[in-house]
């Protein structure tokens, strides 16, 4: 396959940055999207140019490191798939592919396609956990969890925190990510004692980081590689309302 790439190049956080065109020949349809970029980077290195910086780690769709807005869609055209699991066979020979970083004030560009997603870590620190005493691990089934709750909690827990929801949202909102954590922990017996302070703390931190508010357009859930449903946000809203009542 031959491809025409247009990639966002930005030297550092303060650099203005621009889309730079590259022609890439000899792309195998069996390559993953990141392997295609590896091929480009090898060529750039041999040519004495600066390789394109992009985030990646496990390359098996579970770590949440890879990102990339491909032709305007976070993680590219294939549904419920991370960029690392996207293969070049989903593109056609001679196609022009635009590659941009996540765009959000809360996710500043570090270099090229790499953004700082520390804002998500700070949202987690503001309540996305349970406090458990140290000591020997309790028996796995000591606290029973109803099966439907366990299933819904697990569905939410599959969120890998990649930030595609923010990248897709017309408001730059991080509500789907925040709501996935609220749903996951709020359905578990272990999550109950901190349920109110969790939602208040996480929503506060979400707003402090400069994410926008949710308008329920559903763009987030459409691009989410783990298919976190929009209903999670409704659960967050219900918990928030309950916490406000309890705290007043």
């Amino acid at each position: 396959m031959k491809l025409k790439l247009r990639i966002w190049r930005q030297n550092g956080p303060q650099d203005a940055g621009s889309m730079v065109p590259y022609d890439l020949d000899d792309v195998s349809p069996d390559m993953s999207f990141l392997e295609m970029l590896d091929v480009l980077n090898e060529r750039l290195t041999l040519d004495g140019q600066e390789p394109v910086a992009f985030d990646h780690d496990c390359r098996e769709g579970i770590c949440g490191m890879c990102s990339l807005v491909i032709n305007g869609t976070p993680h590219g055209p294939q549904k419920a798939t991370t960029t690392c699991q996207l293969h070049m066979r989903h593109f056609s020979d001679g196609e022009t592919i635009d590659i941009e970083p996540w765009r959000a004030r809360a996710f500043p560009v570090v270099k090229d396609l790499v953004v700082d997603r520390g804002a998500f870590d700070r949202i987690i620190q503001a309540g996305g956990y349970i406090s458990a005493p140290t000591g020997s691990a309790p028996d796995a089934h000591a606290v029973p969890v109803p099966k439907p709750d366990a299933d819904e909690a697990f569905e939410a827990a599959t969120c890998i925190g990649c930030g595609a929801c923010v990248a897709a949202c017309p408001n730059g909102s991080g509500m789907l990510f925040t709501a996935a954590k609220i749903t996951h922990l709020g359905l578990m017996p272990q999550g109950q004692p901190e349920r109110d302070s969790r939602v208040l703390g996480m929503v506060h931190q979400h707003d402090e980081e400069g994410f926008g508010g949710c308008t329920n357009t559903g763009e987030c859930t459409a691009v989410c590689p783990k298919g976190i449903p929009l209903a999670a946000i409704s659960r967050l809203n219900a918990d928030f309302r309950h916490a406000l009542k309890a705290s007043s």
Binding site: V69, N171, D207, G210
Partner: peptide
């Protein structure tokens, strides 16, 4: 707030 949340726009952005 939503406008401020995305200071740099996408070069390639399909319709919502």
């Amino acid at each position: 707030r939503a406008r401020k949340a995305r200071p740099v726009r996408y070069a390639h952005r399909p319709k919502v």
